[in-house]
Every structure is written in structure tokens, then in C-alpha cells.
Design a protein around this nucleic acid. Structure first.
Length: 219
DNA sequence: TAAGTGATGCAT
DNA sequence: TGCATCACTTAA
């Protein structure tokens, strides 16, 4: 499907949110399974904007890099809630990041969505985040939050309900998409100073929108 | 490569 | 209280 065809398709898009049970397993298993599915935000005109997830990271209950590793606080509360909710946090005084909460209530696990391919509503995204290169639109966890206008108000939102303005919807062609953009690369997570060797980052190597390639060497 | 931004968490 | 750190982005 071409870009203009997708744009037309968008006006009739009837997304089917992934169910809460999808997020019930550990984030370690959910993160790679999210690749290819659609992160969607309802724009003010009612149309859905967003696109296919191409990069994700898992944060686990027994993982020192996880915000919920120590104890429940006001900031990380939604991570402790039921699966299928959003955990949105503010970082570096400027930006937001979006996570899908996983595992049962009381277990602080989540998947950080690090990059998507802009598939629907690109015009609205570009209005939110003016860039010259399309690749810059959503190739990073806070870039995609800017493009989709995901802010603190979405922390705790139900991403499994069409009543929400922020959902993750099943891609009916997910297998084909993953094959086309594959292979899936498993790598270490970005920007950590603890637990940096855990292989909990997943991305589609064939996508232009992956935030950064795996570092082959570092000194 | 480094500055900027403000919330968080741990040490005082 | 203070201060280092932080799941990042931008401009250079």
C-alpha cells in the first residue's frame, strides 16, 4: 500500500485494540511481540494518527534499570497497576516517554516504545513536530511523544479501550510487516548505567525509523 | 559532543 | 536540604 493509499485508508480506520491479556505476560515477552502493531493517537479531528512500532525495550520488576525496581511512588504508580495501561513519564526536564504496562497488578513491568513508522495522520504529526526529514519525525521515544502529542495526561490511560485517545491496535498484517522489515534484532538497552548488559531491546533492522543501530564496539 | 531542563532519590 | 543523576533531543 502506498503512502497516499494509507492516508485514505486512515479516514476509515477501525482499529482493534490489543486486549489487556496481551500485556499480562512479562514485559520481556511482550516487547518483541509489540513490533509491527500500531501505536495510535486520536487527533482533534477524530482521525487516528501514528503507526507501526519498530523498536521497543522491556523493563522488568527485578531489573535495576526499571523505574519500579525500588518501590511504588507517585511517578511510577501506573507501572504497578493492571496491564494494558500507559505509563508516561517526564524526563530530562523537557520530554515524555511512553510505555505499555505489562504483568499483573502490583508487578512493575513495562515496555518502552522507542520508535514507530509514521503510517497514519502524518500531516497532524508534522504539525506537532515540524521536521524536514521524515525519518526525524518518530525515530526516538520522546520524538514520537512530541509527534503524537503524548503528555502527562495519558499516564494511566487504558490503551485497550476505544474510549481512549491513545491505544495500541493490532496490525492485521503484522507477520508480513515484520518479515518485510526484519530481521528482529535483540540488543542491549539505550542510555543506561545499570543493568546495561541485559538483552531487552528489540528492533526491526529493516526500518529506517529505528532510533539508533546497535553499537558494535564501544571504548 | 555538550548543554539544557526539572523531577527524583539518596546522602547529608 | 543539597546534589548527582536521569529509559533524551538539539544544535554544533
Amino acid at each position: 500500500m502506498s503512502r497516499s493509499q494509507l492516508s485514505t485508508f486512515n479516514s476509515q480506520l477501525r482499529p482493534t485494540p490489543l486486549s489487556a491479556s496481551f500485556y499480562e505476560p512479562s514485559a520481556e515477552f511482550v516487547a518483541p511481540k509489540l513490533l509491527g502493531h500500531f501505536l495510535l493517537r486520536r487527533a482533534p479531528d477524530g482521525a487516528w494518527a501514528g503507526g507501526a512500532i519498530v523498536e521497543s525495550e522491556a523493563y522488568l520488576a527485578n531489573d535495576p534499570a526499571c523505574h519500579g525496581f525500588r518501590r511504588e511512588t507517585a511517578r511510577n504508580r501506573s507501572m504497578y497497576g493492571p496491564p494494558g495501561r500507559a505509563y508516561v513519564y517526564f524526563i530530562y526536564g523537557n520530554y515524555f516517554c511512553f510505555n505499555a504496562v505489562c504483568a499483573g497488578k502490583g508487578v512493575a513491568e513495562a515496555v518502552l516504545v522507542r520508535a514507530i513508522e509514521p503510517t497514519f495522520g502524518e500531516e497532524w504529526m508534522r504539525k506537532n513536530r515540524p521536521v524536514t526529514k521524515e525519518r526525524e519525525l518518530t525515530s526516538g521515544p520522546s520524538k514520537l511523544c512530541l509527534a503524537l502529542h503524548i503528555e502527562r495526561e495519558f499516564d494511566g490511560a487504558d490503551i485497550c479501550s476505544l474510549k481512549s485517545d491513545l491505544i495500541i491496535a493490532g496490525n492485521p498484517d503484522v507477520k508480513r510487516f515484520v518479515r518485510a522489515r526484519g530481521p528482529v534484532v535483540t540488543a542491549t538497552r539505550v542510555g543506561l548505567s545499570v543493568a546495561e548488559h541485559m538483552p531487552l531491546r528489540f528492533y526491526l533492522d529493516g526500518s529506517e525509523f529505528v532510533s539508533r543501530r546497535q553499537r558494535t564496539f564501544s571504548r
